[in-house]
Amino acid sequence: MKIKTLEEILKKKSSKTEFAILTNLENGNSEIYLPGTSPKGEFSKYADEIEKFFKSKKNGVIENSEIFVETYIKPIKVIIVGAVHIAQYLVDFAKSLNFEISIIDPRGYFASEQRFPDIKVINKWPKEAFEEIETNSSTALIALTHDPKIDDPALQYALKNKFYYIGALGSKKTHENRCQRLAEAGFAIDEINSIHGPIGIKLGGKSAPEIALSIIAQLVSETYKK
């Protein structure tokens, strides 16, 4: 691989562009491929196969050839509501996983840059904050404030926009009350039941890093189910 190609790969990765690296295993030539374009030179005759790898989000050697395809897909967007202590540990865990995190918290003293370096922190109420984030059915929401004023609008937005994972922190009682409010707001019972509440898998721990670990474990598990 040429140094120039490596630099280009790193640039594409940091700008969250989807791309593939094509490598001719016989002569060592490599190229960067963007989906929807025509592969260059010696790779041009494998256009269909390359596109197939892209669609299935897989890496591998094209059958009956010496061409290796490695695809890079966009990270999964995770929106955390509540720039609280648990969020700091979530950010740490997510660093080594392919998640892109944004944090929403209207309370300025929580949502400081010093508490969350390198993370997009939106210091606004959820309704306004969601105008700044592009979301779809591959987005996840983790609501951590257990304050209905802040969590509820975010949960409603996530339900309406069919996020694949929605979790909300709080005790069983807190969650029952939350479900009640969502029912009164007109959400169907199966929509409400799709919310993971109390959030996280049962690990038994009560400390902030332990709760963060149980949330991230549930998120990874649900990501593989989708």
Binding site: M1, L6, I9, L10, K13, N59, V61, I73, L97, N98
Partner: peptide
């Protein structure tokens, strides 16, 4: 979720190159 951990390896490769080291990249292909 794929490419999660190894993403850092290419960044590290560039750091090593910038430090004037010779770098060989090994990739699992099959």
């Amino acid at each position: 979720m794929k490419n999660s951990f190894d993403e850092k390896i290419l960044d590290e490769a560039q750091d090593w190159i910038n430090a004037n080291q010779k770098v060989v990249l090994a990739t699992v292909i099959q």
